[in-house]
Write a protein that binds this DNA or RNA. Structure first.
Lengths: 175, 175
DNA sequence: ACCTGAACACCGTTCAAGT
DNA sequence: ACCTGAACACCGTTCAAGT
């Protein structure tokens, strides 16, 4: 992948994490990377293509990240609580697929399909790490909802309040 | 409130529930209600005003709805699981404040404040219905996340998978 | 291979003008 | 009191033109 393609995707991802599909324009991205908006179209023909590419890359890197974290800590609950926490607390950013997923009904089909793939990857991976399907669904829902609420309330402590008991109950079982 | 104001808010709400703040235009709303876009500006000077009004009305009606449901069933978990389920399954719609909340960092301050008020109202009410603050935070996060995931996956069964065990654990305690 | 300027129909917003 | 058309700078997209 060319440097320019990567730079465009980086700029688009940052803006999608803040404002979703309607939250970025080709002219803004162009200024971010130092070209004209028609040049952005050369690398990504449409806005759909660019957003879909960002989602696909996010899904891949997230998948690798979760695998690596699970190798160091075999408790999937702790792994997922911590990894998603790092996204919003350390990076001060939302998961782009979550921002897009909340408005999925208004997304171009190509982008909606990539967002769907992200959540399918997450559920499948949690199950492969040992949790029953229902527990995986409940865990991921709690974490995604905690992200959205922390974002809406502008207070990352909300994420911890929502997820602390997940870890405590887990420890109680292990003890 | 005039009929026209209400009609404009109804049209805006439907579109916000699908696509968020970037998912509706004054020209579309104008066509929905049968006037010109400049007439919509007469009732709501800016897009911010319109979106904020929709959020404020949603918070008020939701608050009343949760009160009424709690009078008929004194189990807050069951009340909240069921009420939010009705929104996405029966109405096939998202909670507008959730769609907007996911992109809160890109929202006009006036709208962001109303979205924040919605979630504060929810947490406060669940606590007033008897749940500890942390449990209220975890419950609401799970439901909001289940809504987002159902929307992203295009499958309302996801909401049930994520929330069924909440009800089962509740029954186990009661029994 | 990569970039650009000009053009198109769209957007939010304003405002003078109508009834 | 309520509505409108025209104008402004913005948007995604296209395309002929440049290097």
């Amino acid at each position: 992948m060319s440097d320019m393609k990567t730079a465009i995707m980086d700029a688009a991802q940052k803006r999608i994490q803040i404002g979703g599909f309607g939250g970025f324009s080709f002219r803004e991205i162009a200024e971010d990377v130092g070209v004209k908006s028609s040049s952005v179209h050369y690398h990504f023909p449409t806005k759909d293509d660019l957003a879909a590419a960002v989602c696909r890359r996010w899904t891949e890197t997230a998948s690798d990240h979760f695998d690596a974290a699970f190798e160091k800590d075999s408790d999937p609950v702790r792994v997922w609580v911590k990894t998603l926490r790092d996204t919003i607390v350390a990076d001060t950013r939302m998961c782009p697929c979550t921002v897009l997923g909340a408005a999925a009904q208004d997304l171009p089909p190509q982008v909606a399909a990539e967002v769907k793939r992200f959540f399918e990857m997450c559920l499948k991976k949690i199950v492969s790490q040992g949790l029953p399907a229902k527990a995986a669904n409940e865990l991921l829902s709690t974490l995604i909802g905690a992200m959205v609420m922390s974002n809406a309330l502008g207070d990352t402590a909300t994420y911890d309040r929502a997820t602390n008991d997940l870890l405590r109950r887990r420890k109680a079982v292990a003890a």
